[in-house]
Write a protein that binds this DNA or RNA. Structure first.
Length: 425
RNA sequence: GGAGGGGUGGCUGAGUGGUCGAAAGCGGCGGUCUUGAAAACCGUUGAGUGUAACAGCUCCCAGGGUUCGAAUCCCUGCCCCUCCGCCA
């Protein structure tokens, strides 16, 4: 949620900024509603004032044993008038709120212009792309030949876009998770948390998945209306919903390993082969809650923390900055990390690191108490994948494959693999 | 699953249908004292909206209702606690 003041004062300028990301703000509708809201609210409040004053004087008169009948008669019509105005006002506010809750965040001034993926800008390439003296296979074939990765059985058990892993490959998958968590907690100063995998609507509203992106989510059908989390960002950032933390506790850095569930409703034909795009995948998430003046540098650090994983694993990657139009709803600025995938001869997204500034914090009333002023102020929230485990597994398999179809276990993972150095049949 | 008790400011916790945005304590902030600190004492201290600043308005879990007037009474929901049963 953007600062409501933007909608009252600089509506034209705001519309300009949002157009940069391909969002058309309905300036006329909003300003008309806003105008109505203002006059109605003033009217409503003066009626309330009248009611409060007369109720008070009736109370006084009664306490002194006076006859209150004439006073009651005088306020007779007030009640229904007030009820009508309040009903109209709350209807109007709901309408306005419905519009504003669907307005995305404003791009940071350092974000490149553009509306499509092609307009994203490459900032750096890190690591050497591996060369093979044989035709490298993709992870689907590698996994199938090892007898450790099976999509057909998964679709029997559940349906398409799920996977079954077995034996050392399942262990490698777990090893990656442990390695990531240990790196972030022991070397990068994150606090590990365990959180629910189902959340309520308020939490999803807080991080911005609702009300606009319901179709991307798996919703439970019983009367509690819980949703499966699409990312740990939701439960972890919501740790601070409706909280006021002391400034001295900042910055807060959390990491969590969770499964993520996405319906992928809008991407039926894309990446149907393999582990790139699944309904269920594991991710180690990084979340930071910081003072406003620190969020720009916090995004740089957080992105480095994600990069460190790729570097330690010896995977080649590139760092992209997303153009205004390719960013997520809540983000002001996003770096994507893309890992080299040999079978596709392409870099593919493996991490997305964003600064939301106060956009989510305002929705969820996540605040800190300033030591200087003693007043509560909105936090800035950031998050990033550190990393998507399924995609990392795929990258390790393909980049570390050998001519005989075996897979060398990266040095840093061996302690988590009981010393196994090569995964083979 | 059964029975009961609760949700009040940053925290703990009082609150009679009317001068209650709300006692008290803790914590925070300012001060006195002190070389400095602690202790003690004095003062101050909810969030939002609005205003040039006041005023005004909203908020005592959420949503409805009763009433001239609701933190207080009624209904529904959510959450927490205690006891019994069941259970990994």
């Amino acid at each position: 949620m953007l600062d409501p003041k933007f909608f009252r004062n600089d509506l034209k300028q705001l519309a300009e900024q949002l157009r940069a990301r391909g969002f058309e703000l309905d300036v006329d509708a909003i300003s008309a509603l806003e105008e109505k809201r203002k006059t109605l609210q003033v009217h409503c409040e003066s009626l309330q004032q009248e009611r409060n004053a007369s109720a008070k004087s009736i109370g006084k008169a009664k306490a002194q044993g006076e006859d209150i009948a004439p006073l009651l008669a005088a306020v007779e019509s007030l009640k229904s008038q007030l009820q009508d105005s309040e009903a109209e006002l709350s209807g109007l506010q709901a309408e306005l709120e419905g519009i504003l809750a669907r307005v995305p965040n404003i791009p940071h001034e350092s974000v490149p212009a553009g509306l499509k993926e092609d307009d994203n800008v490459e900032l750096a390439r890190v690591g050497d792309i591996p060369t093979f003296d044989f035709e490298p296979k993709d992870h689907v074939d590698l996994g199938a030949e090892l007898g450790m990765l099976d999509f057909d059985t998964a679709s029997k058990i559940t349906g398409s876009r799920f996977s079954v892993m077995k034996g050392p490959l399942a262990t490698l998958h777990r090893a990656l998770t442990q390695f990531m968590l240990n790196t972030h907690t022991l070397e990068h100063g994150y606090n590990e948390v365990y959180v629910p995998y189902m959340v309520n609507r308020d939490s999803l509203y807080g991080t911005g998945q609702l009300p606009k992106f319901e179709e991307d989510l798996f919703k439970l059908t019983d009367d509690r209306e819980f949703y499966l989390i699409p990312t740990a960002e939701v439960p972890v950032t919501n740790l601070m919903r409706d909280e006021i933390v002391d400034e001295s506790a900042l910055p807060l850095r959390y990491t969590a390993h969770t499964p993520c569930f996405r319906s992928e409703a809008g991407s039926y034909g894309r990446d149907t082969r393999g582990m790139i795009r699944q309904h269920q995948f594991e991710k180690v998430e990084l979340v930071q809650l910081v003072k406003p003046e620190e969020s720009d540098t916090a995004l740089e650090r957080l992105t480095e923390h994600a990069e460190a994983i790729l570097q330690k694993l010896g995977l080649a990657y590139r760092k992209m900055i997303l153009c205004a139009g390719d960013m997520g709803f809540s983000a002001t600025k996003t770096y994507d990390l893309e890992v080299w995938v040999p079978s596709q001869e392409k870099y593919r997204e493996i991490s997305s690191c964003s600064n939301m500034r106060d956009f989510q914090a305002r929705r969820m009333k996540a605040r800190y108490r300033s030591a200087e002023t003693g007043k509560p102020a909105l936090l800035h929230t950031l998050n990033g994948s550190g990393l998507a485990v399924g995609r990392t597994l795929l990258a390790v398999m393909e980049n570390y494959q050998q001519a005989d179809g075996s897979i060398v276990v990266p040095e840093v993972l061996r302690p988590y693999m009981g010393g196994v150095e090569v995964i083979k049949r």
